[in-house]
């Protein structure tokens, strides 16, 4: 490692990619991009790009995994070999297995799993390009894909990372800030419920710094929540009234 220090925040107080400390990267969410999945979403957060597919509820195989009182949620977080600078082996790494579990646990409290006992809901997350914050983008996109699949949920789950870079608390870290910054703290949150479903941190924050960072994360989540809702409204927006009148009087 070279001794040269990377400047993460310049003299004007701007970050490596020119953002202000509390500014998010440009965010784009598209719903229903895959024809063969029950629900799907594509997310672009800065240079991070992910594709999420949801299948289910469907019959569970192998059968012995079935839970008698609720559906089994299975997640696979996977990075494409071309998603990072140096080719990544396509085999699931230790990190990917762990992230799969972490993402599953962030989504589980939101989904009404008890409505589909003995079935499986499968979530496949494919990272096409990684530039930091992929686990957060994965949670954000997965909850949109689950909603697209028509799976009942308490609320959408939104995730966003906060961290400390060059002594400053910043929101939505990119890859460089994640690697060379002091702290990275991903937070997943259900905005309408006010429930945090994921909170991780590597690095050290003082109590005051943590409180500031946590508040910033929740504020960022609220912003991303709006983007999620807009994406879903765009997909299902063409829905109008007359049809429902006829639908409600069926049979």
């Amino acid at each position: 490692m070279s001794e040269e220090r990377i400047v993460l925040i310049d003299e004007r107080g701007l970050r490596v990619d020119g953002r202000k400390p509390d500014e998010l990267r440009p965010l784009k969410i598209e719903v229903g991009v895959l024809a063969n999945a029950n629900g799907s979403a594509y997310i672009e957060q800065g240079k991070s790009k992910l594709l999420v597919a949801v299948y289910g509820p469907r019959e569970l195989h192998p059968k012995h995994l079935a839970l008698p009182d609720r559906a089994l949620l299975r997640c696979r977080y996977h990075m494409a070999p071309f998603s990072v600078e140096e080719r990544k082996s396509p085999a699931p790494s230790r990190r990917e297995i762990e992230l799969s579990k972490v993402i599953r646990e962030a989504l589980e409290p939101a989904i009404l799993l008890d409505r589909f006992p003995r079935t499986a809901i499968d979530v496949f997350i494919e990272v096409l390009e990684a530039d930091g914050g992929t686990r957060c983008a994965a949670v954000t996109a997965a909850s949109v894909a689950l909603a697209d699949a028509g799976i009942p949920m308490r609320d959408l789950v939104v995730a966003c990372a906060v961290g400390k870079v060059d002594g400053q608390i910043v929101v939505d870290l990119c890859d460089l800030e994640d690697k060379y910054g002091e702290v990275d703290m991903p937070v997943a949150y259900m905005p309408s419920k006010g429930v945090v479903t994921l909170l991780q941190m590597d690095g050290i924050l003082t109590r005051e710094e943590f409180e500031k960072a946590f508040k910033m994360a929740l504020e960022a989540c609220e912003k991303i929540y709006q983007v999620q809702k807009d994406a879903l409204r765009r997909k299902f927006g063409g829905v109008q009234e007359e049809s429902v009148e006829e639908v409600s009087g069926d049979k």
């Binding site: 029950n38 629900g39 289910g56 509820p57 469907r58 009404l112 589909f116 909603a147 697209d148 699949a149 028509g150 799976i151 009942p152 949920m153 308490r154 609320d155 309408s192 879903l232 299902f236 829905v239 429902v244 639908v247 409600s248």
Partner: peptide, 26 residues
């Protein structure tokens, strides 16, 4: 009472429901 899915709200005889736009057959 909250909505659990993406759909159209419906209130009839004090029953609040949502007409789902996607989903599997139960």
């Amino acid at each position: 009472i909250y909505s659990a899915v993406v759909g159209l709200a419906e209130i009839k005889n004090k029953v609040v429901s949502v007409i789902a736009l996607k989903g599997c057959y139960i």
